[in-house]
Amino acid sequence: MAVEVCIPTVFRNYTSGSKYVTADGSTVAEVLADLEARHPGLGSRVMGADGQLRRFVNLYVNDVDVRTSGMLDSRLRDGDSLTILPAVAGG
């Protein structure tokens, strides 16, 4: 299933400047793996080698935060979209 992914400014160097790209997958984790295959480096900026979301990145399915909802492995539905945002945090 093709899913639209919104790319934040900081990662658009991986997508030739594109703000929206499409990727395939039936779960968030699969979409991120496909993103990595299509745009080498991008998927791994979002998800670490341990299969977890990186601490400084927020990821949303539609309007739901993937981290707080534990949706990394839940099924996506047709028309779902993903949004990546750099977390804004510090000390």
């Binding site: 927020n58 949303y60 309007d63 935060d65 981290r67 707080t68 949004t83 945002l85 977390a87 804004v88 945090a89 510090g90 000390g91």
Partner: peptide, 23 residues
Amino acid sequence: PMDNAARSMTFYEFDSMEQLRVW
């Protein structure tokens, strides 16, 4: 102005849902 979801004297973090709305 954003909420500091960390409510801390040594750390700040935007609330992820507020950030999505504002962005």
